[in-house]
Design a protein around this nucleic acid. Structure first.
Length: 868
RNA sequence: GCCCGGGUGGUGAAAUUGGUAGACACAAGAGACUUAAAAUCUCUCGGCCUUUGGCUGUACGGGUUCGAUUCCCGUCCCGGGCACCA
């Protein structure tokens, strides 16, 4: 074997071996338990970044570990290939999104292959291929039939200059990212999937997901947001132009605080609410305010932080319990699309209403008391808003607590026929229509006579033309007569195709099932899918904790209800990988937004601790701001792993990435430890080279103390590493590899008889623990040292009790909880003997200062604490 | 603003989830080898002090406990998500 460690040769040889033996081709088989290990597929943005390397190395370590444990492993890979960045690239470079995407896929696939991942490439898919998205369309049509999909109106960001719908990401400080024009809210028709019909099951089934992190389940539960409240109506006799009562003379609201209904002093409605529009007809100021509300953001974060503003309508409604007249206001914080587009205002017991009432001088009426805490109008107190209190100033409801008051008030409202208890979900239906070109066409044909007609199944897929070049204004499909013009499937007259495409979350909601179908499947899923599903281990970024994972769970349940699959949940175990962060440098140009620059374009100043104190553009010296954020194409801060792979090899890149931090932890990227990882692999190689000429033998008989200690250290470390692997804590598995090598190197080669046996035993353990992380060097050394032909077929090592055995153990000695020394005792000694030994210890006596022990705490195998 | 995480040496981190704080590394410093450099190897490395010893120390302030990085309450800071980025 070669004397020097040359990753390029080693990695080529190992990869050729895997390729020629089809080592990672997954074949359904009942002989072994199956292990479906899935990493979230990448968006083909151009190059891999460190987040990808982290994600896929984690998946690969788990895949290879399970292969060695005797599982039938499936690890597939594919491309989340539709999306906005391809259109942005098209605008910039005048290249069709399809070409850009396919070129990126080809390059990134090469990068993934060079990292030596144990992927079954025969199952590769790209969501922009008709043979894949055909089934999006097919399932969408099934959902339409079942009433799970429906057409209604949606609110979008509209750029009036480009005449284009903007994604939230493209709205910067209320303006279009390219035009700088003030963005308007606009209502347009679109398709929704009724995920709210599944809210209950999506919430309940979280309890069955034992392999999911608690925090993700908690986030999903909060997102679904089940709350029980009361929906009730204020009455009015306001008539519209047609002479009829607006909304049948009822203003409906929903509240989770029905116990405070007696404290209502105003109502607030959304700017688009019929009462608001009615009042605005002869109120210029109100009309202007409503117009202004149209320019607000549709994003929840903006809604929650913006200044709450409102205007009175001059209209009054009647309180259903008190009969009092309550004024209706228009509030910029009330959403028409949420509930009934109206809310009750209880300033005394809702922080937002309190601020609103103070600002506009609306009455504040206390109806909840907490002990004898004084209620003051001066400032908001935390307790005003809590549910622990009793009703006051509430007539017959006085002295009731929260639960009793809600029950009584709900009953009275129900008796009058103007209200009822209602379960309310925070979760909203999933709007899937996108006014964008590079996505899966929605299979609908619009006919002047027949309306919206589903495309017949035998005409699927509706194929997206791949040669369009978007220019940023409107959807380029509108200019494609060959795509748009068709005939109505119902009446045969000329008709137009829907040009909206589907949300890319649709594509990623079921790809895991498609990987598992057999080659050449003629249905969406097949019998082989049943063998592989569910996914045993899913790995991906924590940023997907809610949306993608919730949509996938929903999609699975829909497929289940359509009889396509038997499982109700797609992912048994979930590992949420921490994000890889890097500094991003930007300037804020006039008109808002952020312009990002690559660090190479800048001079970055740092203080003695390495913290960034400032950054200037090399070209003109202008000053930049910086933030620590996720690596992404749009922020010009992604670190391409290619240079690392070329300089040090894939094994170093993988090993370093695993060593740098535990997988779930956020990682601030710095390559300062890469050298160390590489040095370690060089030492592994050198040790293997030295050992390759030593005869192999079983460890027998008694060993010298040094050898026995080294062997115990190795087996102890192995035990810890196996435990760490079960916890999916790979950074300490990597350091375990280093500890084993340190132990092996520490004993002199000629120290004693039996050295070679211990060294071979230890080194073969090292290679097996190391190989899931650094598979190339593991594979080649395993062969070169003659341990076997394929390390993947080798059994996972088990620590030997004989090697771990110890006669005496050392316990830490504490006096009053402070470390004062240690005591050595026989390993099998009783608590009483330990106590006696400790109390007789010189250091113990010194720090007891002659006082009698009050208590002696003995923790077996760890410590003894004398309390005086 | 709301929901979910995180904060430990100069740096990345570890601590078998209440039991020796800083394993394993990186960086730095000193030394060995070398004509020299690289590579490699050895040693030192949280802070303070009166240094074969002691005090102190896990963002900050309290609490529970024989014992707290770990559990509880409060505060500050950082990251993720907030429904059209993926």
């Amino acid at each position: 074997m070669q004397q020097t460690y040359t990753p390029s040769d080693i990695e080529k040889a190992a990869q050729q071996y895997w390729e020629s033996t089809q080592a990672f081709k997954a074949v359904a088989s009942k002989d072994k338990p199956k292990y479906y290990c899935l990493s979230m597929f990448p968006y083909p943005s151009g190059k891999l970044h460190m987040g990808h390397v982290r994600n896929y190395t984690i998946g690969d370590v788990l895949s290879r570990f399970h292969k060695m444990k005797g599982y039938n492993v499936l690890q597939p890979m594919g491309w989340d290939a539709f999306g906005l960045p391809a259109e942005n690239a098209a605008i910039k470079n005048k290249v069709p999104p399809a070409k850009w995407t396919y070129d990126n896929i080809e390059y990134m696939k090469g990068q993934l292959k060079s990292l030596g991942f144990a992927i079954d490439w025969s199952r590769e898919l790209a969501t922009c291929r008709p043979e894949y998205y055909k089934w999006n369309q097919w399932l969408f049509l099934r959902m339409l039939e079942k009433g799970i999909a429906e057409r209604k109106t949606q609110v979008v960001n509209w750029d009036p200059v480009d005449q284009t719908v903007l994604a939230n990401e493209q709205v910067i400080d209320g303006r279009g990212w390219r035009t700088g024009a003030l963005v308007e809210k606009r209502e347009i028709p679109g398709y929704y999937l009724k995920i709210t019909d599944y809210a209950d099951e999506l919430l309940k089934d979280l309890d069955t997901l034992e392999g999911w992190p608690e925090r993700v389940k908690l986030m999903q539960a909060n997102w679904i947001g089940k709350s029980t409240g009361v929906r009730f109506a204020f009455s009015h006799d306001i008539t519209g132009d047609d002479g009829k009562l607006i909304n049948d003379g009822q203003l409906w609201v929903f509240t989770t605080r029905a116990d405070t209904v007696m404290g209502v002093t105003f109502c607030a409605v959304a700017a688009e609410h019929p009462l608001a529009l009615h009042a605005a007809k002869d109120n210029v100021a109100l009309a202007a305010f409503i117009e202004k509300c149209k320019h607000g953001s549709v994003m929840e974060a903006d809604m929650a932080t913006m200044e709450k503003e409102g205007l009175p309508t001059g209209l009054y409604v009647t309180h259903p319990l008190t009969g009092e007249q309550v004024e209706v206001w228009v509030g910029n914080y009330v959403l028409m699309s949420y509930g009934d587009g109206a809310v009750m205002g209880v300033p005394a017991h809702d922080e937002r209403d309190f601020a609103f009432a103070k600002k506009y001088d609306i009455a504040i009426k206390q109806v909840i008391a907490n002990g004898d805490k004084p209620f003051s109008l001066d400032g908001w107190q935390e307790w005003y808003g809590t549910k622990d209190g009793i009703c006051v100033n509430s007539g017959k409801y006085d002295s009731l607590d929260y639960t009793a008051a809600v029950d009584a008030i709900a009953a009275d409202l129900a008796a009058k026929g103007v209200g009822e208890k209602k379960v309310q979900w925070r979760l909203r239906d999933w709007g899937v229509s996108r006014q964008r070109y590079w996505g899966c066409p929605i299979p609908i044909i619009h006919c002047d006579d027949c309306g919206s007609v589903p495309v017949p199944e035998d005409q699927l897929p509706v194929v997206l033309p791949e040669d369009c070049v978007p220019d940023g204004s409107g959807n380029p499909l509108h200019k494609r007569a060959d795509f748009i013009n068709t005939t109505c499937p119902k009446c045969g007259k000329p008709a137009k195709r829907e040009t909206d495409t589907m949300d890319t979350f649709v594509d990623s909601s079921w790809y895991y099932a498609r990987y598992a179908t057999g080659a050449g499947a003629t249905t969406m899923v097949d019998a082989e899918t049943d063998y592989w599903m569910t996914v045993d281990q899913y790995i991906g970024g924590i940023e997907h904790a809610i949306l993608h994972l919730l949509y996938s769970r929903f999609w699975t349940k829909v497929m289940g209800d359509l009889g396509l699959v038997k499982y109700r949940e797609p992912f048994a175990h979930l590992l949420t990988q921490g994000m890889v962060l890097n500094n991003a440098f930007f300037q804020k140009p006039e008109g808002g937004g952020k312009n990002y620059f690559w660090e190479e374009e800048l001079d970055v100043q740092r203080d003695a601790k390495g913290l960034i104190t400032g950054a200037k553009l090399k070209s003109d010296g202008s000053v930049l701001e910086h933030e620590l954020t996720t690596m992404s194409k749009s922020k010009n801060n992604g670190v391409d792993p290619q240079a690392l792979i070329e300089q040090y090899g894939a094994d170093t890149a993988r090993f370093f990435m695993m060593f740098a931090a535990p997988p779930e932890q956020t990682l601030e990227w710095a390559d300062s430890g890469v050298e160390g990882a590489h040095r370690f692999l060089k030492r592994v190689w050198a040790f293997g080279h030295g050992l390759s000429t030593e005869a192999k033998a079983e460890v027998t008989g008694s060993l010298s103390e040094d050898l026995a200690n080294a062997r115990r250290e190795i087996h102890l470390t192995l035990k810890q590493a196996s435990y760490d692997l079960s916890k999916q804590q790979f950074n300490t598995v990597a350091s375990a590899c280093m500890k084993i090598l340190n132990a092996l190197e520490k004993v002199q080669k000629d120290a004693a008889a039996g050295w070679a046996a211990v060294a071979h035993e230890g080194f073969s353990i090292l290679l097996r623990v190391l190989s899931p992380i650094a598979p190339h060097i593991g594979h080649v050394l395993w062969q070169d040292l003659g341990y076997g032909s394929d390390i993947l077929a080798a059994a996972w090592p088990e620590p030997l009790e004989a090697a771990l055995k110890q006669d005496t153990i050392e316990l830490m000695l504490q006096v009053n909880g402070k470390l004062r020394g240690s005591v050595k005792v026989a390993a099998d000694v009783s608590k009483e003997v330990i106590e006696a030994t400790a109390l007789a210890d010189e250091m113990a006596l010194k720090f007891m200062e002659g006082k009698a022990p009050k208590k002696v705490v003995v923790v077996p195998g760890r410590l003894v604490n004398i309390v005086v």
